[in-house]
Structure formats: structure tokens, C-alpha cells
Nucleic acid binder design. Structure first.
Lengths: 269, 269
DNA sequence: AGACGGTGTTCCAATTGATGGAACGCTGCG
DNA sequence: CGCAGCGTTCCATCAATTGGAACACCGTCT
């Protein structure tokens, strides 16, 4: 193969990279995969693929299905995910605030961080209110959504340093996903400016039909945006203006309280 | 080092194993680890440890902390965990049943699978009832507990094939964890027999003081036990007998309904 | 039946990718 | 200032990975 440093970073482990590629091949819509299948997908020999799979299985990250002989993810991978969640002091600190906001408003509230061009949900309080339509896009903790068409994503990107934003923007593929999705970088930048002056981001059916939400940024002790908090409703429940008026102040207040609990000094900014 | 097959299985990848060992080193109580620290823990050279860490960071499984230069788990590891959860049809199928049971009884209910000698929580419906004491042992989805001192663990082990049980039992370390923990293999086997005839497992402060729960097994389409469902309360809420009387039938019924939804034929057994 | 194409798995010599000592730049401490 | 620790990079050495071949097994198609 290549001599050394075939891709970008020098000094990385090919074996580890390949093994993790195998793990990542398993999705909810593709839960069972065989060795040969993996070897084709990742362009490895069957024996090599098998060695990785055997290693992963030995360590509990994969399990072999008795009948089909194929493999699935093992319970061990859950450990990793929840170690990550539990490591985030943000989750612990924000939990009571989220809960209170959800109780007071009777709406579903979420907390998400930015990872590249996606937002990743890290906390969620649902209220199965009567008459509240279920617009669940499979939005559990751990779910990913493109940042550009979510209120939380925009709330974070609006307050990110210009240099970081410049790195992220070109990667975004502005695909229409809802009736009002922003589909150009320029429109998106204008939107971010609006959010900066309002201190609140809105999502008016930009991700999916019927889905509205508002979100506010959360800051770390060092003053960087690290997350966002949102409150979501179905379009039949409120117009965008009503939402901002009714829930905007509470969302901003909760976000600020969490920021303060993280050690953020609002005066400094 | 060793020539080949240093531990147990021949044909496994040392690099992948070491890389995953690094990932597993990160816990909630040890979220930030440096390269040198890892190299000492895992007995690797600093350069080797660094190569693995660099690989994991490049792929998003680790992130470097800007100030301390040390590393933490990245959001990417969440993907794995939730792929695993979403792959389990059991989770989807049981969700409505769990929710209903929780609503009807006003108690917290859980679903867990067996992994070695542990149970792993894969679903949970809490009810923050008034007056309900918080005995949270950090019991979220993904949490692990030793099977021998939980109702769900015992409910599963009671219906596992004898050969599998014989493999698992010797690994169990019967440490007292609550007032009534079973502390000998013989007492444990007797308990399993009781559970088999009752169809219901109880945990009467065997895991922790004040914690009571009852659990029933869930079967797959092929008739194997694959999980258990429990309902937990604090000791001040009900005696063990009251719990069994009040909630036992509902727990058993819900477990049976889930089994049936999984394709289990009760008549066959 | 029989041949076939598919699977997961094992083995082994060839060699490629991992290894770790040495060295660099940095930070914080005494 | 020196020192000790850190994360990082480099490179010749060498061991761990590699992949072809072969095995056993399973359905399917002829």
C-alpha cells in the first residue's frame, strides 16, 4: 500500500482506524453485517476483516448472531456513549434547569452541542402533553441533525468566532428540508446576524413541515458558546411570533442561568 | 513481545485492542486523560499511545482539551451507543408497553438485557411522583449493575439454559451490597428455582438499602430469555408482599405482552 | 445427487505497518 | 535559571498485520 501517512495526519494507526470503521458500519437500519460484506465495503481481505471483527467481538463491542453467523453491535458500546454523556458537567448542571423549563412551559426542551456541521442532542425533557402532536424525528439523546436548519445549530453558530465559522460554512450543504429552509450561505449569514442581535434563534419549519422551535446559546466559563437550549412545538400550537413572545424570555433566561452555573460571567462579554 | 496469540483468541488485532483500551479508559470520574498517563496505564510507549490517541482524535472519538492538552471522549462515541440501542427492535417494541405500565402504576419501570454477569439498562420510564424518594444509583439507559443482586438479573438468569448458567455462575462475586444480598451460589440457585416457579423475581434490598423491585422475564421468538422488565419502589412505599400483590400481575402481563410482540408463543413453552 | 457459489474461519510465509528510543518545543515549578 | 513534566515528531528496526489458499459449512440451482 502507501508508504506512510496516506491520508492527512501522519502518525495514525491504520489498524485502529479500520477497526473503528467496522464499528461505524453498523447502523439502526443495518444492524447485522457479515464478515464478507464488511470486507467488501471497506476493501479489506476477508481474513483481515475477520481478525478485526474477532477482536471487536472478543472485547464485547460486537456480538455474533447465532443463526445468521453475522455480527451486531454489543452492549459494550453503550458504555462508551454514556461515559461521554456522564463526563459532561454540562449535562448535570443543566438538568434541573431543563426540567423546570419543561414543567413551566409544558413543552419539550432539548440541549445540544455542535460537532462539526451537526448538532448532537445531549439532553432532552419531553412532555407528552395532551393534544401535542408527535413530530418525533427520532430525536433522542445522541441524535444528530444538520446545524444549518435547526434553531440550536443556528444559536451556536451565531456566536462562534468568525474564524471557526469560516471553516464550517463551506462544509455545509444547504439542502431544503422544510418549507422555509435557508438555502444559501449569504441568507444563512444574514440569519446569524439577526440571531446575534436578538439573542434568540428561531426555526420556523426549516427542518421539517410543522416543526417550530426557538433556541438560545449557552456559554462556558471562558465565554465560548458550547451548546444551545431549545423549546419545540408543532405549528398548530403557536405561530412563530406567539412562540417568541410566550416562551422566548423563559428560554433565554434558562440558557443564561445554565451559562452562569457553568461559570460564565455575563458582564465580561 | 509475545509471538502470537498472547491471550486466548488467536487472530486478533493488537492495535485495535489497544486503541479500544484507550477509549475505555475514559469514565465519568476520569474524563480527561493525557497521553503520558495513558501510556503508563496501558504499558505502552509514549509515542505509541500518542499514535492511537491521534487516530481516535482524527476520527472524532476523542477531543483534545485546548488548555490542558489532555483528551476527552468526543461526541462521535455517542453515535455508536445509539446505533446499538436503535438496532434493538426490543426497545421499539417494548416502548409503548413500558410507558403504559409506568403510567398505570405511577412507578419507574426499566428494561434490561444480560451481558456476561451484568445487566445493562436499555430502556427506562421514570415517574417523578410526589413523595417518591430519589434512590437513583445513576440508573440511566446504558447503566450496568451486577446481575446477581438485581431483580432483572435474577429474572433473566432463572430462565437461561443450565449450560449457560453454569458458565456464568463461577464468574459471579457474591459481594453483599444491601441488607438482603444473596451471598452464596447455593442460595442463589435456590432463589432462581423459586423465581422459575413464581414467574416473577423480587429484589428486596439486595442491591441497596431501601430499594425494592420486581421483575419478569421477556422471551424472544425462539423462546430464549432475552431481557427483563422491572418496576422499582422505595421501601417506604410498600412492603415486598404488597408490591408483589399490587404490581406483580401487571409486571408479568406487560412482560408477556412484550414477549408476544417479539413473536414468542407462550403455548410452545 | 451433485456442483456451485456463498458464507465464516484457520493457517502461514512475506512484508508492511507498528514500534519505541531519541530529540524538540513547550509549560509550570522550584 | 534549571529542571521535570508534558505533547509531539522522526526514523531505523522489527514484530504484528496481511492476504492468499484451504477448510467446513450452508443453501440453491441444475
Amino acid at each position: 500500500m502507501e508508504s506512510r501517512g496516506s491520508d492527512g495526519g501522519t502518525g495514525t494507526s491504520q489498524s485502529l482506524e479500520r477497526g473503528l470503521a467496522i464499528l461505524s458500519s453498523f447502523h439502526s437500519d443495518r444492524p447485522l453485517i457479515g464478515v464478507s460484506e464488511l470486507s467488501r465495503d471497506l476493501e479489506l481481505s476477508r481474513s483481515t476483516a475477520h481478525r478485526y471483527v474477532a477482536t471487536l467481538a472478543k472485547l464485547g463491542y460486537l456480538q455474533q448472531d447465532a443463526e445468521s453467523k453475522r455480527y451486531r453491535l454489543g452492549p459494550k458500546v453503550l458504555d462508551l456513549g454514556f461515559s461521554a454523556l456522564n463526563s459532561m458537567e454540562l449535562v448535570e448542571i443543566s438538568a434541573p434547569h431543563l426540567r423546570r423549563l419543561s414543567d413551566e412551559t409544558g413543552r419539550t426542551v432539548n440541549l445540544a452541542i455542535l460537532d462539526g456541521i451537526d448538532v448532537v442532542y445531549i439532553e432532552r425533557y419531553r412532555t407528552a402533553q395532551q393534544g401535542q402532536r408527535e413530530i418525533d424525528l427520532n430525536l433522542h439523546v445522541g441524535a444528530r441533525l444538520p446545524a444549518y436548519c435547526t434553531a440550536m445549530g443556528k444559536a451556536i453558530l451565531a456566536f462562534v468566532p468568525e474564524e471557526q465559522l469560516a471553516g464550517v460554512l463551506p462544509q455545509i450543504d444547504f439542502v431544503p428540508r422544510g418549507p422555509n429552509t435557508l438555502t444559501s450561505p449569504s441568507a444563512f449569514r444574514a440569519e446569524l446576524a439577526k440571531i446575534r442581535s436578538a439573542g434568540l434563534a428561531v426555526n420556523d419549519e426549516e427542518l421539517a413541515y410543522g416543526l417550530r422551535s426557538i433556541a438560545a446559546p449557552i456559554y462556558s466559563h471562558s465565554g465560548e458558546v458550547i451548546a444551545a437550549l431549545n423549546l419545540a412545538v408543532h405549528r398548530t400550537m403557536a405561530s412563530m411570533d406567539e412562540m417568541v413572545a410566550r416562551f422566548g424570555p423563559a428560554v433565554i433566561k434558562s440558557a443564561q442561568e445554565i451559562s452562569q452555573s457553568m461559570g460564565h460571567r455575563p458582564a465580561t462579554v
